[in-house]
Design a protein around this nucleic acid. Structure first.
Lengths: 175, 175, 175, 175
DNA sequence: AATGAATGAGTCTTCATTCAT
DNA sequence: CATGAATGAAGACTCATTCAT
């Protein structure tokens, strides 16, 4: 819906707490009341946005079986870096909410779910690649990518995203 | 002041936006009015908190000159992991604020300043250690540590912080 | 109509002010819009409900001419107590609205009308029964019955309705 | 407080649901915010009003021990009729709330408490006066008085309150 | 230095009502 | 007849900030 798009932009731009329902309505070009016709509450909008994000996340993680382990890894890194670059707002919003204890439990659990899936996939690939401690290796990769996302979200184009991508790719998927 | 301590706890616990000045006053055991005697505004409290944090950060980064490059690296990692573990609230608060565009410009610039200092130090050490691209290497380490901080702040004790520390130490400061 | 039934139940259960038109629509199994096809406004629904109640009231008060005065009195008391018992919701709603000055003038006048009719009938019967001051006696009986209605509406089955009925019957229609 | 007075007048005049907090504030000559400085919520104001009313009720029911039973009865009737006449708003408000299921449980229980006390006193006096079934007699008197209160609250000065008083007095406390 | 009464703008939310279809 | 999307005017409540004392 237009509501979700508008709300997402606003939330990503100004943060959930600071964004008023009225401003979302204005941005969506509709009346405040109508928002409550479609969503129970401000939180519900956020939840709906997240449901969409979860789907996007799943897509990124979904890889054809015929890929080689190295191919999967390359694909994941490609997708993730693209996500970091294109969906800065999404990343910012997600991290911001993950950090705020105010977030509803249901939201937290959704975030955790996405995270779990991600980790599970990483672990599996590292296993296939024969790493010693796939679990720990997965955490390491996760931290690295999150850290890059965070830095890019904060600094914007000042950040040498491409160089970092090359470096990471080389490290995990040597040519 | 007691105000700063109370405010920091509250902000870290519930987020800046969700924390009311009254609740800070109550936690500090003083009256609302008194807070405005010492601070211009709610934002000013936050700024003061950050000034303290900057000092803490500088301390972590300040290393005696007689340390070998490797020693410096070890020291930095030790301090950072200790910070991650002990000051989860600080980390959460900082990242949360860094991500929220609502933050005043002055706040942002302080955060950036700390970051710059950190990066500069990393770069210098990597130079001393003879890395190929110290700049990029610094970004990589920064991302890694930030990612770990983020994960630990989100997951808490479920996160294998010690194992990660060992892994990272080994990587950067081989025994 | 189904609308009136649904609305009546809702109004009686939750009060007029607290009942939303949507909830009436849902209870009636139709759409909100349709209600406005049949009724001008929420108030109009209430008015229509009252029109029905007035009819019920008139029925209670309508007595065959061949009844003796004492027979009429017995009949009235019987009917009234049955009404009190069976139509608690109606009683509650009516009194509640009679007390709220918010009620439209038209509503008030309807309530008053029913009251007047009732009083007139009481007066007539007391006259026929040869009471000294039929007017005052009618007010007394009215008060008594209203008081019982009120108490029963408030307390429910804790109230000794049957005993009260016996007592009042004995008083006004000695065996 | 001025708030309670203003709120009471408003609630009695327009009903609890229809009275806005702002209008109470305006009537009290203060700002909306200040009301929330003194009361948790709109309901809390109502509760406070009721606490005062309970006190008034207790006063009416408190009778010196040296009164004869007949004297007590006379005194009660006198007080009650005075209350009916002077405190019409109170009566209206109380009954209105007793009938509205929306009222909080705490409120309901307060009303019931007052009622219980009243009934207990009536029963005791009827016992002392040697009535056959004091319990039922108490319910009867209660109904009568409530009915009169209700009628007077609805009709106002059209109602022959004085005549009713004489009649009831004569009935229960013959000269 | 210290209090807390006071303000008013702003927030989320509800709801009677209208209207295009 | 019938729907339900759409509106806008409230309403309860919060909170940063000010100010008299």
């Amino acid at each position: 819906q237009r509501i979700l798009d508008a709300a997402f932009k606003k939330f990503a731009q100004e943060g959930f707490a600071k964004t008023s329902v009225s401003s979302v309505a204005k941005k969506a070009g509709i009346s405040k009341g109508l928002i409550y016709h479609y969503f129970e509450s401000k939180e519900a909008i956020l939840a709906a946005i997240f449901d969409q994000l979860v789907d996007v996340g799943d897509e990124i993680l979904h890889l054809p079986d015929y890929f080689t382990p190295a191919g999967k890894m390359r694909q994941i890194l490609e997708s993730t870096f693209e996500f970091i670059k294109e969906q800065t707002g999404t990343g910012r919003l997600t991290i911001g909410l993950a950090l705020q204890p105010e977030a509803t439990h249901s939201l937290k659990s959704k975030i955790e779910q996405v995270n779990k899936n991600q980790m599970a996939l990483y672990v599996k690939i590292f296993e296939e690649l024969g790493y010693d401690d796939p679990q720990l290796e997965a955490y390491r990769l996760g931290a690295l990518l999150d850290g890059i996302l965070l830095a890019y979200a904060t600094m914007g184009d000042e950040y040498p995203l491409e160089e970092m991508k090359s470096k990471i790719m080389e490290e995990y998927v040597p040519a």
